[in-house]
Design a protein around this nucleic acid. Sequence first.
DNA 1: GCAAAAGTGTTATCCCTACACCCATGA
DNA 2: TCATGGGTGTAGGGATAACACTTTTGC
Lengths: 233, 233
Amino acid sequence: MVSDPAHPKVAADVAAFAFLEGAMQVLLVRRRYEPYESYWALPGGGLHPDETLEQAAERELREETGVSDVFMEQLATFSEQDRDPRGRVISCCYLALVDGGRVSLRPGSDAREAAWRPLEELLAEIDRGPVLAFDHDRILQYARRRLAYKLEYQNVAWSMLPERFTMSELRHVYEAGIGRAFEPNNFRRIALGWGVLAEAGERPTGGRPATIYRFAEREPRILAESARYRRAT
Amino acid sequence: MVSDPAHPKVAADVAAFAFLEGAMQVLLVRRRYEPYESYWALPGGGLHPDETLEQAAERELREETGVSDVFMEQLATFSEQDRDPRGRVISCCYLALVDGGRVSLRPGSDAREAAWRPLEELLAEIDRGPVLAFDHDRILQYARRRLAYKLEYQNVAWSMLPERFTMSELRHVYEAGIGRAFEPNNFRRIALGWGVLAEAGERPTGGRPATIYRFAEREPRILAESARYRRAT
DNA sequence: GCAAAAGTGTTATCCCTACACCCATGA
DNA sequence: TCATGGGTGTAGGGATAACACTTTTGC
């Protein structure tokens, strides 16, 4: 392995989240090779010469799990010297938001398997001791905070939902992502107040049919101006 | 220059801000060597083998400008293939907040000079066309947005102020950093409501003497919970 | 006294929470 | 007709933007 210290190995890792089975889930791969052989880890791998870090993150996610075409945003870069036992590896980590119903998992050659794991359970396990390979425990905790913030800040929930969805489904994504229960009516008013939802028919339920919504434009938009101690003039 | 593509050059750059002469200023260095010789740029340089990216950012800032011991936070990592004409260089960028009255600039060997430049003027210039070396125009725009957000979110203004300051001085830092004028009384109430300010005497002014404040603890703290559509139980 | 700068009091408004209530459907 | 889930109305409380006002100093 090359170890010219001025040119460390550079990698991209991905914390991909989806709302499945009523809970927020994170996408993990089971490692096939040393180090951390058979440990669960975030999908990721080395940067290729002809791609940016974001492209590397997309490629590694696709190669290792079969998931592609998702919302992606840079989280942070981790550079501690001992984060990989093989030598110096600098990892740029990405947050991905996935519509879990749209993708099917196909583990790649570097992974024994790929699976969605319930986020809350996994984080509770991490609180009791190391779980994931490398420093991925810490990266996941970081990603979780960003996920919660991101949902409140921008209308990126469209990337975790099918094209058409009910207000309850939207609210469930928010509750699972932010980790708090919301008063349904108040949530509805806020969500409609964003001005990014359009009605798209109805859907039968166990009770009264639900209005179907879709995002009028699938573009990130800032939802709430945190406007404190406002201007004079 | 080594160009093993799996091991690109990795660098750290710093967007350092200080409140000086009534305005927000950014710290730039004038380049001594090619490429972009004699252009202004953000201070920064290559990662050493024995340091993290954050340590590299601190070291480069110190070496190129003489500024040390400041608040620092990672911004983002830029990896476009053509961002440096010499070859592939991946740059992890940091936001630094500086008490401009405490530091004195000492340009290092790689820089002809180091200087504070008024942020608003510089950004206006950038809007009219390229100004800084490499992709530093874009990085600076990114840093500016983060600065505004950071001030609203955490009590990090202590790192841009002397130990003791008046409420007006604190407000001026916020106005310059966020780019908006605040109603003095409302700002005061919010700032005192943070619960992180302690009174520390008085200071004569042109008129009535001003109360002096200091930050009771110089630790980052979240100031306002953006609590929307709150919980049902 | 007057200007200047800091500091105080108060109100109208808006937003948000909480909760009670109504609607449409299937069994 | 009841259970179920969706959808609506609204009152109280708290935050805050705006602005008028008072205090303390230097000249």
